[in-house]
């Protein structure tokens, strides 16, 4: 048997089995969990089927997959030897298997945009013909909405800004295109009447005063300015500077969307470009270019242009792409799994 100078460690099975699960930690997540001040992770799942469980940090998201094993995986813990008359062992502790796991949980990185999720669950904010703006009585806070999006919160926040979603009295909303147009109109009017230039720095409160007089909530103006400025914080008090590319692109899409309502079949490119430039501050007129709208429009004829339906989701990576990557990786992995056990059997 074993050499005497190598002490045997008694190994026992504890009948009071505990419930533990084993979760594989990819390097990125391991760094987070073992950092000096680790955050609380969250397991989320989408409300609509298929509801995969997704483990999220602020900026990472992993789909959880349960992987069955034909092996027995014991979780062991040192336990005190209760018997005093055991002369065979020089140690006074042994190993006790306190849990048996038939599966482990694997994590697969998930990427994608939260825009489809937000579009699905955020009610539209709009004006009635008489100018009144109904607020849904029942609604969910931003926090509640985010906790149901199976993605990292940072990703959800990005999409939130992208869609110009906002919270009004604790209810999360997103504006429809018409509402955005009227906000934009109010901001332009404010710029004209107060003489500030949207291509330069200006005070946000100068911009929303006008919109508020039209009955438009300040939160919505902020949501629009936040998206167009590219930096989210302190819009209320600080001088702000619009991001030229974002701004020019957004106005282009807005104008094209407006034109579609007028002429659904497509508007002439020349007319559209003129209308677009008219929305821009003088110094930015030259920056209007169809390249900025790549992917957001189609051309029914060479001289006409029409906006695509989901143009507001264009900036984000297409979700279908990420799903393909995921399944590709998974099949590679499962193949390896079989090879591993084939080798072990030999």
């Amino acid at each position: 048997m074993e050499a005497p100078d190598h002490p045997a460690i008694p190994f026992a099975f504890c009948h009071d089995q505990k419930n533990f699960r084993l979760l594989e930690l990819p390097p990125d997540l391991l760094n987070v969990v073992t950092s000096a001040d680790p955050p609380v992770l969250r397991i989320k799942s989408s409300e609509s089927a298929p509801a995969h469980a997704v483990l999220c940090t602020d900026n990472l998201a992993y789909q959880i997959r349960q992987v069955q094993s034909s092996n027995s995986i014991f979780l062991t813990k040192p336990a005190k030897d209760n018997h005093s008359n055991d002369a065979a062992s020089s140690l006074d502790s042994h190993l006790s298997a306190i849990a048996t796991c038939k599966s482990t949980l694997e994590l697969h990185p998930v990427s994608g945009s939260a825009i489809p999720h937000l579009k699905q669950c955020l009610p539209l904010y709009f004006s009635n013909e008489d100018g009144s703006r109904p607020t849904p009585v029942e609604g969910r806070s931003k926090r509640d909405v985010f906790s149901n999006i199976p993605l990292a919160d940072q990703e959800s926040e990005r999409s939130w800004v992208e869609l110009m979603a906002f919270e009004l009295d604790g209810v999360s909303l997103r504006p429809n295109a018409e509402e955005l147009r009227s906000v934009w109109k109010a901001i332009r009017t404010a710029a004209d009447s107060q003489g500030f230039d949207l291509s330069q720095q200006f005070l946000a409160r100068d911009a929303w005063k006008e919109a508020e007089e039209d009955g438009c909530p300040r939160e919505l103006v902020h949501a629009l300015l936040r998206k167009l400025s590219g930096n989210g914080s302190q819009i209320e008090t600080d001088w702000m500077q619009l991001d030229r590319v974002k701004f020019v692109r957004w106005t282009g899409a807005m104008v094209l969307d407006r034109e579609r309502d007028r002429i659904p079949g497509g508007v002439s490119i020349t007319a559209f470009m003129e209308a677009w430039k008219d929305e821009l501050p003088e110094s930015w007129r030259a920056h209007a270019s169809l390249d900025l709208l790549k992917g957001a429009y189609s051309q029914p004829t060479p001289s006409t242009i029409v906006i695509t339906d989901d143009y507001d989701a264009i900036e984000a990576p297409a979700p279908s792409e990420s799903t393909n990557n995921l399944s590709g990786k998974a099949s590679l992995r499962s193949r390896k799994w079989h090879e591993k056990f084939k080798n072990a059997r030999r």
Binding site: E2, A8, P10, F11, A12, D81, N82
Partner: peptide, 17 residues
Amino acid sequence: PKSKAAYEAETAIGRLV
């Protein structure tokens, strides 16, 4: 083990070396 509590709790499997 002679103690009843310990017996209840565990069944020996073997020894690790």
